Amino acid sequence: MPQAIKISPNTILLKSDPTLPLSEAWFDPEFWQSQQAVTGTGNGRGAVWFINSQFGKFVIRRYRRGGLIAKFNKSHFFFTGQKLTRPWLELSLLEYMRSIDLPVPHPIGGLYIREQGFYRGELLTQTIENAKDLFDIIKTGSSHTLNWQEIGAVVKRFHDEGIYHSDLNCHNIMIDQNNKVWLIDFDKCEQRPQDEKWKQSNIDRLKRSLDKESNLHNQFNISDAQWRNFLEGYRG
């Protein structure tokens, strides 16, 4: 479990990696910008900053709301206890998955700040070195270079451990230079009892994401044979 450190009455630092001198400033992109350590930004299920520092390469993700509520509330969530905050839940799950050797990012820490019954939060994880997400690889016309059976087998490993990924899509599967398959972004994910329904729902979600991107991008192509290979790898 993360170590909770009270920075102020309303600011709590959550520490997963005890070897790093983690502080509140580490979650502030301007702190890293002042050191010329911000190497890029991104969007997904949160605002994202990529950091290359003397302590290593990190990803800061600021939790954001989705859907209609995001139009008037982008980053505040009801506070119902520390162990139900987004950073605590995600760090705890990452720590557990690392302990059973699942290929996920190394958790560094989190931060949440309480404000009048609400909180906002951030997460810090280690960058997966020399890796690209499935979307970028396929978009460059390189889907034939992927080991689709291995991708399927890795997804199955998570399912066998009861890990439900609430947003399994082609942006949250990464392949590194050694062809190792990783899963990222475990916000709102959880460990569930074994049930074929949620597992199939996960697979269907991934297929929908691939089909969606294929309709949006001319170079984004996946053959029926490649998807069959994925399913074969998943089924073992």
Rank of each mutant, 00 (worst) to 15 (best):
M1R: 12
P2G: 01
Q3R: 14
A4M: 05
I5N: 12
K6D: 15
S8T: 15
P9C: 07
S16N: 14
D17T: 11
T19P: 07
L20W: 07
L20T: 13
P21Y: 00
E24C: 02
A25W: 03
D28K: 09
D28I: 04
F31K: 10
S34C: 07
S34R: 15
A37K: 04
G40F: 04
G42T: 12
G46I: 01
F50P: 08
N52C: 05
S53V: 05
Q54R: 09
V59E: 04
V59Y: 02
R64S: 05
A70R: 07
K71C: 07
N73C: 13
S75Q: 15
F79R: 13
G81Y: 07
G81N: 12
K83F: 07
L84G: 07
P87W: 00
W88G: 11
E95P: 03
P107S: 14
G110L: 05
E115I: 12
Q116E: 09
F118I: 05
R120N: 13
L123M: 09
T125R: 01
Q126A: 15
E129F: 05
K132P: 01
D133P: 00
L134W: 05
I137F: 07
K139C: 10
H144M: 03
T145R: 15
W148N: 11
W148I: 00
G152E: 03
A153Y: 08
V154G: 06
G162Y: 08
I163W: 00
Y164D: 09
Y164R: 09
S166K: 00
S166R: 00
L168H: 00
L168A: 09
N169L: 02
N172H: 04
M174L: 14
D176M: 01
Q177L: 01
N179C: 01
K180T: 09
V181R: 02
W182M: 02
I184W: 01
I184M: 02
D185K: 04
D185M: 11
D187K: 03
C189A: 14
E190F: 01
E196K: 04
K199Y: 05
K199T: 13
K199C: 10
S209H: 06
L210H: 02
D211V: 10
D211C: 00
K212T: 05
N215G: 06
N215V: 02
N221G: 09
R228D: 12
N229Y: 10
L231S: 13
Y234F: 13
R235W: 08
